[in-house]
Write a protein that binds this DNA or RNA. Structure first.
Lengths: 110, 110
DNA sequence: CATAATGCATAGCATTTCTATGTATCGCAA
DNA sequence: TTGCGATACATAGAAATGCTATGCATTATG
């Protein structure tokens, strides 16, 4: 399993990148993270929801309640424009750090 | 400048990767980070030393005092075997997150 | 001789993380 | 029909962490 500092640091960009592919809801996002990381990241719901709420408070994502055919209610989240921008910025920053860590810092990162 | 969660999460691997190229001391490490990141990461000494101490406490690096020709005393740090191992692990984990964030999680990360 | 740069160290405040807990519905098997 | 596991959202507050602010000391420079 991944180091927890990494999990924390990647939380927001990861959620944004999932929502960039279409709206989704809490439970499904947790499973998507597990799938994408090939079981190397495992989030609890208690870790996810606060991040979702924070992102919404910051205006990067928005939510709406949807009743599934099953009758169960789900809160679907989707990206807002500032969220797309934030995601792009996150990816750029990660690329820089990744380059510094792996490339020995002697090439251009652009 | 980079987001601070990222700076924090990359602290240990970054220091280890610098020391992997040879022993160094606090002040020089701070400058090396600045250089490598092309001024996009700027560490204060107050951020660095605690990390250095922590890494030493964990047995990943070791230190020795050296008197420079100038007469100034410097504490040189170098990698120990567990530190090399930790660095390799860090790099692996970063690669995974990087892949999940950029590659949409549909390819192999190995 | 004053200031900037070099050099190390740490207390403790501020912030953040995330565990533990609560609530509720649905599907299924015993 | 009842009990359990999976689904689904939410939050308080303990625990851990980051890093600013501060302290001290030496050397180079103007």
């Amino acid at each position: 399993m991944l180091r927890k500092e990494l999990v924390a640091a990647s939380a927001e960009p990861l959620i944004l990148s999932i929502l960039a592919e279409g709206e989704s809801y809490g439970y499904a996002i947790i499973q998507e993270i597990k799938t994408r990381s090939q079981n190397r990241m495992e989030w609890t719901d208690g870790m996810l929801y606060p991040v979702l709420h924070r992102l919404e408070r910051k205006g990067q994502i928005k939510s709406r309640w949807v009743e599934a055919e099953s009758g169960r209610k789900r809160k679907y989240y989707s990206l807002k424009q500032p969220g797309k921008k934030a995601l792009a910025e996150h990816r750029e920053h990660w690329a820089i750090v990744h380059a510094v860590l792996t490339g020995f810092g002697h090439q251009s990162y652009v």
